Amino acid sequence: MSSSRSGPVAGAGVGRHLLIVDDDDRIRELLKEYLAREGYRVTGAAHAAAARRLMELIEFDLVVLDVMMPGESGLELTTWVRGKAQLSRTPVLLLTARGEAADRIDGLSRGADDYMSKPFDPKELSLRIDAILRRTGVKPIMPREIRLGTAMFDLERLELTRDGVPMRLTEAEAQLLKTLALHAHAPVERMDLSPDTADITGRAVDVQVTRLRRKLEADPKNPRYLQTVRGVGYMLAPD
């Protein structure tokens, strides 16, 4: 698989959350890096069991599945996705080293929306993802403002007010709040909230969240809007 270092397509994947399921760590990380530059938010899973847990917790806009995985295959996982009422309309794109017509027919007959053979060009994959998302639904319109009780956050100006009074935000706090707002009601992994920091523990994010809660919440110790999602990270739940 080839990969270029070209710049991102402005806004191509803004508001879209993808799940990449592949037991090959290299391919999974390369796709996560490339698609993130295209504007997508990307979560990875190394096997079907992990993907099931994630899909039961998080609503994804599209799932990219490797067919040949140890244990449950991508084909079997596609059948499971199509059999779940809350997931049945989630687009699925299959990736595999098996390019025979019979394999493609099998994948499509199980409900996959598209099928790509390895090796592949990440740019083509991105274009196919974009085409699937355009076919299957309208691209979400991002709100300019979100309401959090008596607080209001302007995503364009990165300004927060509470009871009409401006609340001072550091640049890091403003960017963190914007990221959470763009993925409202969906858990965001702790490290995805601080991609440019050298802090691999995520503690800097925890400190910022604590400060934000003091500015947002009526009771910061029992947050209503900026919630902790155990084992994942944080989630913003605006009104």
Rank of each mutant, 00 (worst) to 15 (best):
D66K: 01
R82P: 08
L18I: 06
Y34M: 06
G13V: 03
A102W: 07
L155T: 09
A50Y: 04
T96G: 00
K215C: 05
P8K: 11
G137C: 03
D163E: 15
L18S: 00
P220A: 02
V229R: 10
N222M: 12
G44I: 05
K123D: 12
V229C: 04
A50M: 07
E76C: 06
G13F: 05
G11Q: 11
R5I: 11
P119N: 01
L158D: 07
R89V: 15
A112L: 00
M55K: 07
Y225F: 15
Q208T: 04
M55H: 02
I200A: 15
E100D: 13
A198K: 15
G231Q: 04
G233P: 02
Q86C: 14
P140R: 08
D25T: 15
V229I: 11
A181Y: 04
D23L: 02
A12Q: 11
K221N: 15
R98M: 13
S194Q: 11
D163I: 08
H183T: 10
I132L: 12
L158T: 07
Q227A: 09
P70N: 04
P195E: 07
Y225S: 06
E59K: 15
V63C: 07
A36I: 01
G137I: 09
P220N: 06
S3M: 15
I27S: 10
E72D: 03
H185A: 13
G111W: 02
A174N: 04
P91F: 03
R128L: 04
L148S: 01
A218C: 12
K84W: 05
R28P: 08
S2T: 13
L87V: 02
G83V: 06
A10G: 10
T150K: 13
H17G: 10
L158M: 10
S3W: 14
V209W: 02
K178E: 14
L180A: 04
D163M: 12
V63K: 08
T210S: 13
L75Y: 14
L127Y: 13
G39M: 00
I132K: 02
L160E: 00
S3N: 15
A204Q: 12
